[in-house]
Design a protein around this nucleic acid. Structure first.
Length: 801
RNA sequence: GCGGGUAUGGUGAAAUUGGCAGACACGCAGGAUUUAGGUUCCUGUGCUUCGGCGUGUGGGUUCAAGUCCCACUACCCGUACCA
């Protein structure tokens, strides 16, 4: 049979569509399996070959689970709010909604050509009012529980575009789009109190099965550290509170540093002889762009306060206080005690400003560099701490701090609260109004979804307000609480909002009473397997875990964690090993591959390309191997002999392959699963093949190359589709040959191979090894010291002259 | 800086607990089929001075190391003064 992939693929895609073969069943008595891939942002460029890597991998898992009798939820949708669409709309004067619709249509038709087994009846779109109604609803719940609040925050401001940028849009300190300088500007923003969940977001990683590197990245991002808060009295009679992870080095604190934004600068205004110089420094720091701040990072700057000094609580010494921008207002208390002997940054600063450096932990040379090791050192010059190890000293000093009331143990996190507002058009409107009397008030639930108003221009305003700020008609409303005139919030939500809960909507996508029904949430939660890119292992994963925990706390979802398992795929690179991008000109379009070789070949190649978790360069030549493999399967169809049992010749190889393919799919080893299928085909080519054997092969092939598997199975009389065809079973006893080849080594070097019965005893193996001609030659004239036998694997003869 | 990862033929890559390094492919070479190119099929293919040598480098443990230990180097990803 000739391999007509175009005909075959069109035929089966049509049939799956007509029969709704992948429809998720509403039968909650069946065992369930929820496989999830990250839904894409439907960009104008269309799909590239990187997208299908993840989709195909979990399609294989989903298809296998259906064949194993599970009720499978494998859905797809669109994360469609976002900047590129808005920018395209601005440039071409088209409504973003129309742009989105177009892009989604393009993406969908491309995905359909790949033969992915999504249940399209459950498609979701974050820009659909029926969807974002619930995004807004969740935000209102957060607000009601006090987890959404307004706060003045420094934001990134592009001096040329005159608008606020997200952190991701600032590349090397300049605007991603226009290349102009980006500076900091204070703006009032909506914030979400994710830091309240910081500890639980770390602890509950114990409950889930994520690859280690993902767990590590989450923990690092949250950045928990333990230490102490210590109060330093000042010469002006007040106290300056600091946070440190090294309270053990308190005796070595020879000066203090405050952030330029520290409120004490204003408080001490009248006491500072050099107040003007301090303010000047603060203003210079504020003017610095991100780029300059990073550039200047190596060179420490600062100003010493003239008029206020601090007192080291343990030595009683008076020490100077500096202001420097290497201390950040946003972490700890915005002030530090500086221990130049044992902190690299303090050491650099001390060297530049001539502050004394005292060694309090022995082990290095503090004149040469800061000694930061906590493991080996012993305390010196530290009064009652002398002679203790760092760990012992930490315990002792914290005791002392507690007793004297000068400090207490403290845990800090790097994680900051989530800046949640964007001054943009194409996002979910924040469903709150501001009333002079009542403050911020949520709009009534029955008024959700709050839709975007029609505007003439989507461009941000000159003063950094959202484009919605120009819609006076829309803004003016009444307070739901007291009925007085009120104004709507004009900021919109960030793109992360819609993607923080989309997996819940798939469970019950058309529900208009709740984000999903209780029954659906209980049956489908948690997601059994979630695969996505490493680039989302910090923000998206953390945000969605946070929202899910909140929904758990208010009784909406039944589990504390959303995803039972998380894996990550590597990126598909261009043929030159570089990241695929339009500017590098190395983008490969899946449409071209499908036209030339067919979807099954593309699916196969995407999985065969290499280790699923690692980046892999796209090699156009290598695709042929996969294409040939499918052609050979097709050609073999004409030579399939009748037969309902496995032949003796093929039996072991078949059981082995079933085992390997079954396990490899579970372990993300799609590449070796395909290699095993190729080997089995080679075995068939040598030994001949009958119908029973060929059908098993097709069942194993089905998740990888479903169109061809269907076509060939049909030709063998299989009625219906392969979607629920039973997954082949293997018999462990039949996965091994009666005889094994054991390698014979002499002094660790391979000298021969002997064929022996499986599990034969060591003495027989030794005797057989010594009979082998090449072994005899290698052993001749030597004394045999010992012989090591590893059952069924190797015999090593150790000899000496 | 810090955190994570990677390093194996001409290429993409395989290799349970340490146990025959290079599975499976690509490419290449030779042959067969073909009017020819292409396709398909068969054979070979780590290097080698045929003793051996080979998994980034240098040490170590072991009967045995790609795999374990110590010390390096290079590249990739993330992050940016987090006290």
């Amino acid at each position: 049979m000739k391999y007509d992939f175009k005909g075959i693929e069109a035929k089966w895609q049509q049939r799956w569509d007509d029969e709704k073969s992948f429809k998720t069943l509403d039968d909650y008595s069946m065992p369930k399996y929820y496989a999830l891939v990250e839904f894409p942002y439907p960009s104008g460029a269309g799909l590239h070959v990187g997208h299908p890597r993840s989709y195909t991998a979990l399609d294989i898992v989903a298809r296998k689970r259906r064949m194993q009798g599970y009720n499978v939820l494998y859905p797809m949708g669109w994360d469609a709010f976002g900047l590129p669409t808005e920018n395209f709309a601005i440039k071409n004067h088209i409504h973003p909604e129309i742009v989105t619709e177009r892009n989604v249509a393009r993406f969908k038709s491309q995905l359909k050509m790949i033969g992915l087994s999504f249940d399209w009846d459950r498609e979701v779109n974050t820009t659909d009012p029926g969807y974002f109604k619930w995004t807004q609803w969740i935000f209102q719940q957060l607000f009601k529980k006090g987890l959404a609040y307004k706060s003045t925050m420094p934001v990134n401001w592009c001096t040329s575009c005159k608008c606020v940028l997200a952190n991701e849009e600032v590349v090397n300190g300049v605007c991603e789009r226009c290349g102009s300088e980006v500076v900091r500007k204070e703006k009032s923003q909506w914030m979400l109190a994710i830091t309240k969940y910081a500890q639980r977001l770390i602890d509950d990683l114990e409950l889930v099965d994520y690859v280690d590197r993902v767990k590590t990245q989450q923990k690092n991002w949250i950045g928990r550290s333990t230490g102490a808060e210590v109060e330093f009295a000042t010469t002006e009679g007040d106290t300056l509170k600091i946070y440190t992870t090294r309270p053990d080095t308190l005796f070595g604190a020879t000066y203090m540093v405050m952030s330029p934004e520290h409120p004490y600068i204003e408080q001490w205004k009248d006491k500072l002889a050099n107040y003007n110089a301090v303010v000047e420094y603060r203003e210079a720091a504020a003017r610095k762009s991100d780029f300059e701040r990073t550039e200047m990072a190596k060179d420490k700057t600062g100003v010493q306060l003239d008029g206020v000094r601090a007192i080291n609580p343990v030595t009683g010494n008076e020490i100077p206080i500096f202001v420097s921008d290497y201390v950040l207002m946003g972490y700890g208390t915005g002030a530090i005690m500086a221990v130049p002997g044992h902190d690299t940054r303090d050491w650099e600063f001390a060297k530049k400003f001539g502050c004394p450096i005292i060694e309090v932990v022995k082990g290095g040379n503090v004149e040469e560099e800061a000694f930061t090791d906590c493991e080996t050192g012993v305390m010196v010059n530290s009064g009652f701490l002398d002679g203790k190890t760092v760990e012992e000293a930490k315990v002792a000093i914290v005791e002392w701090l507690k007793e004297t009331g000068k400090g207490e143990p403290k845990v800090n996190f790097k994680l900051r609260d989530w800046v949640f507002s964007r001054q943009r058009y194409w996002g979910e409107p924040i469903p709150l109004v501001y009333c002079e009397k009542c403050g911020w008030v949520p709009i009534p639930e029955e008024e959700l979804p709050l839709r975007l108003p029609e505007v003439e221009s989507y461009e941000p305003t000159d003063n950094g307000e959202s484009p919605l700020a120009k819609c006076e008609d829309w803004i003016q409303t009444t307070c739901p609480h007291c009925g007085a005139p009120a104004r709507r919030e004009t900021d919109t939500m960030p793109q992360w909002a819609g993607s923080s809960w989309y997996f819940l909507r798939y469970m019950d996508p058309h529900n208009d009473k709740a984000l999903a029904s209780k029954e659906a949430l209980e049956y489908w939660g948690m997601v059994d397997w979630y695969n996505g890119g490493m680039e989302h292992t910090t923000l998206h994963l953390l945000y969605s875990r946070f929202w899910h925990k909140f929904l758990y706390d208010i009784g909406v979802v039944p589990n504390p964690e959303p995803y039972a398992m998380r894996t990550s795929h590597g990126m598909i690179l261009g043929g030159n090993g570089e990241k695929m991008s339009k500017s590098r000109g190395n983008v490969v379009n899946p449409d071209d591959i499908i036209n030339t070789y067919g979807a099954d070949t593309m699916r196969l190649y995407e999985m065969f390309i290499g280790d699923f978790e690692k980046a892999a360069p796209w090699k156009q030549d290598s695709i042929k191997g996969c294409s040939r493999f499918l052609e050979r399967i097709c050609a073999m169809r004409d030579n399939v002999a009748p037969g309902t049992e496995y032949s003796q010749k093929n039996e072991v190889e078949i059981h082995k392959t079933i085992k390997k393919v079954s396990q490899d799919i579970e372990n993300l080893k799609f590449n070796t699963a395909i290699a095993a299928l190729m080997s089995l085909l080679n075995t068939f080519a040598d030994n001949g093949v009958n119908e029973a054997e060929y059908l098993t092969f097709l069942a194993l092939l089905d998740p990888f190359a479903p169109h061809l598997a269907e076509e060939l199975a049909e030709s063998l009389g299989v009625t219906g589709t392969m979607v629920r065809y039973p997954w082949p079973q293997y018999d462990e006893a039949k996965t091994v040959e009666a005889n094994v080849n054991m390698a014979v080594q002499v002094n660790g070097k391979l000298r021969g191979v002997v064929s022996l019965p499986l599990g034969c005893d060591d003495e027989t193996a030794k005797a057989a090894a010594l009979e082998e001609e090449k072994v005899k030659a290698a052993v001749a004239g030597m004394n045999i010291v010992k012989i090591i036998v590893v059952k069924n694997k190797i015999i090593n003869i150790v000899v000496k002259p």
